[in-house]
Design a protein around this nucleic acid. Sequence first.
DNA 1: AAAATAAATCTGGTTAACCAAATAAGAGTG
DNA 2: CACTCTTATTTGGTTAACCAGATTTATTTT
Lengths: 234, 234
Amino acid sequence: MKLEVISKSDNREVQNSIISQIRDLINYKNLEPGDKLPSERSLSEKFSVSRSSVRDAIQKLEFYGLLKSIPQSGTFVANIGVIAMNGMIDDILRLEDPDFKSLVETRILLELKIARLAALRRTDEDLRQMSEALEAYSEKVLKGEDAVQEDLLFHLAIAKASGNSSLNTLMLMITPEIITNFEKHHVCDKGMARSGIKEHQDIFNAIKDQNPLEAKEKVKVHFKTLYQYCYNIE
Amino acid sequence: MKLEVISKSDNREVQNSIISQIRDLINYKNLEPGDKLPSERSLSEKFSVSRSSVRDAIQKLEFYGLLKSIPQSGTFVANIGVIAMNGMIDDILRLEDPDFKSLVETRILLELKIARLAALRRTDEDLRQMSEALEAYSEKVLKGEDAVQEDLLFHLAIAKASGNSSLNTLMLMITPEIITNFEKHHVCDKGMARSGIKEHQDIFNAIKDQNPLEAKEKVKVHFKTLYQYCYNIE
DNA sequence: AAAATAAATCTGGTTAACCAAATAAGAGTG
DNA sequence: CACTCTTATTTGGTTAACCAGATTTATTTT
């Protein structure tokens, strides 16, 4: 188990090294936005690593929107300029895994806005899906079972109803880590989940009534319980 | 150029198909959190696709925290439960590329919070880096050159100073797309950038003075100009 | 000399064979 | 039966050869 972690971080070190070498290459060759990177083959040779390692590094940078691979053609520098490229690669290299506090802080921030937007933009189909998720949650709670997943799925349904694809994506990204941490810290126990039903219902009603301020307020109430619970544990 | 797009979306279709098949498999086999997925080889055989395609799909789900590959051991289902797994995979499959409006909306939301946090938590080193970024930005603007990148780098410096790794990551994720869209819509022209110097300076000063409310207010002012500009174009 | 065509090369993507570590099965020992 | 050690197998990761399409170069034609 320990070895696994070491090997993992080792891989990461290798990948980061490749990424920073790609950055240096872009600087050295003065590659402008839209310019083509050397081929994966020559990069792997130049960096003395396997081609798949280079591919993995490129894929990561592609995910962050910094590079763009086109089949049978080449890998291109995104249209964001050398300076931004440098800064962002440095940031990416220094990215640390988010701590629990950061996650909760971010989640609350996102959900407050999401609830307001959902109240303004929700369609009937959105309502139906939210209602379904709420039903599943309540059922689980009333049976006295753990309902962390159903809880989060209800919140994701709200995110979908916000009509903001960007916010929706960000919520999806932080949710798994939230769930993991919740279960690790034993947040959302059976007792507090029961009170959660009403809170969820309130949020749902506010969004149904298309009342953005009320929705935001109810989310705030909902997270107040959660917030304190989390900070007590930490 | 057109063929490229088709092939790209084709690849995505293939990957999405694999992802949904993995989801179905988890359901069918009733895999619980922590359980092991079948090996990449058997998956590629079962799905009639190449092993690297399976690997790519797994990597994507790994990025979203749903799976976890451990070398020489196997790929494991994350500790988030079957129900959440199902819901999240469905969401991921339906994720659409964010539109400009969503991006701007999200960015403003994040930056308002980030500025407040930065005012509370910034270290002297954070200040130094922000100052440096601000300097580079001003210089570019005063020379009458385009300064979109330096602009964003200043904002990323604030994100770093917020002391919230989660928010920092999210900002990094949306920034490239923001830059691309800015340049596409010709936001941030030379004229308005000049007024941006003072706005940036105000934000910097508020954070330096550790005044969170002032910082938030100055960010709001800064984005008011930008906000209107964007919505006019759209 | 310019344009059109054909061949050669270069590209990212795919495939299949190989590697080392981790696990599981079996043999041996007390 | 319990425990240790060895061996065989399975695993994700790596490597190298191959593919089809795009690009460049060379050749031919006008």
